[in-house]
Nucleic acid binder design. Structure first.
Lengths: 190, 190
DNA sequence: CAATTCCGTTCACCTGGGTTAATAAATCAG
DNA sequence: CTGATTTATTAACCCAGGTGAACGGAATTG
């Protein structure tokens, strides 16, 4: 819970009253490996904060699961496109390890916005940051070849490479598993 | 100016007073072919609404200009990542034809938010819509081969194909000009 | 422990885009 | 209108990733 408060304090100052409210509004949520935080076809009803564990974001393209993002300890997870206007999600967030979350519901988040003075600003900053993140990924896909994207993935997630199947990584990088194998081989040789 | 009001009405209702305020806050701005609405290294100080004309969004990767988006009549243009927190832009918006805009400054937009009851909601809906747009493009880059992306471009911008150089389109599609030529040839044959 | 499923790698072959350069077509400026 | 510049196409060659399949090792299951 302290990790959550500190992460929020990274964006806005919090009084003790604010912190107390946050402690109240966020509920602990446990998900086992393979379970979903949001599933395609359903509405994303919460924002989560990962205390321990790992998730992947993926979308469905003709039956193929395309993993395009990961979330790890200390990060917020949410399908904002679904959450913000409570519409049906066209992508999924799945837990890759047993994961411990702090989650806040849509309604409780509105309470947070009302009662914490800088709450709206926090909300805006979070949405901005995920937007900037999406833009960065767009730029990366446009400008970087798979090999570079793989190296950047290793930098961004140095620890989780051993924790998950390679084919999630190959999907994130934008290639098929055999191709990621070749990339890894090339990198090992040099 | 009516086009602007109608576009805003597409998101929120406007009273006559609202409309009058909008007429006051948005200023006509003319840009000639080749000029910039925002340039890399500068701050995006306005949101524009295209009355007539065409723009491209691009970013700079090792001296290569990567065109990743277009804007046409009836669309808002802005580098929101720069505008929202008035930070330095890392991308540019350039005018591809002599273009007539209606533009509102950052400060005047705050006035709009304060005075128009549904103003904040409009702002949120716009930011959401550009976010969703970025996500769609991300999904497209992940899942669609260049040939499909080119066909989708033709659907999305049926008219402007003749108005701009092909290499902007090839950049948008994610390939080099010779490759787009081959794609066009393949499509013409079938 | 044995059987099965899952997963990563490798192979052979194919396809499509990158690169460079030449040429042709279109556009622009004087 | 003409020469110059810009842009689009084409060709030849190379290379990286896709595909399908086989293999071996790891993890799971009963």
């Amino acid at each position: 819970m302290e990790a959550l408060l500190n992460t929020i304090r990274h964006f806005i100052p919090l009084t003790e009253a604010d912190a107390a409210l946050i402690r109240q509004l966020f509920k602990v949520k446990q998900l086992s490996k393979g379970e979903y935080f949001v599933q395609e076809g359903y509405t994303c009803k919460q924002v989560g904060f990962i205390q321990q564990g790992l998730v992947r974001y993926f979308l469905n393209k003709d039956g193929q699961e395309l993993t395009y993002e990961f979330g790890k300890e200390g990060e917020f997870i949410c399908n904002y496109a679904s959450f913000l206007d409570q519409s049906v999600s066209d992508e999924s967030i799945q837990v890759l390890e047993d994961t411990s979350l702090l989650a806040i519901s849509f309604d409780d988040l509105q309470t947070f916005y009302k009662q914490v003075p800088a709450g709206d600003r926090f909300g805006r900053l979070i949405v901005e940051s995920i937007f900037v993140r999406a833009k960065k990924q767009l730029a990366s896909l446009y400008s970087e070849p798979p090999e570079v994207r793989y190296r950047q993935f290793l930098q961004l997630y140095p620890d989780i490479q051993q924790r998950i199947p390679q084919y999630y990584i190959s999907s994130y990088v934008g290639v098929k598993p055999p191709s990621l194998s070749r990339i890894r081989k090339r990198l090992a040789q040099s």
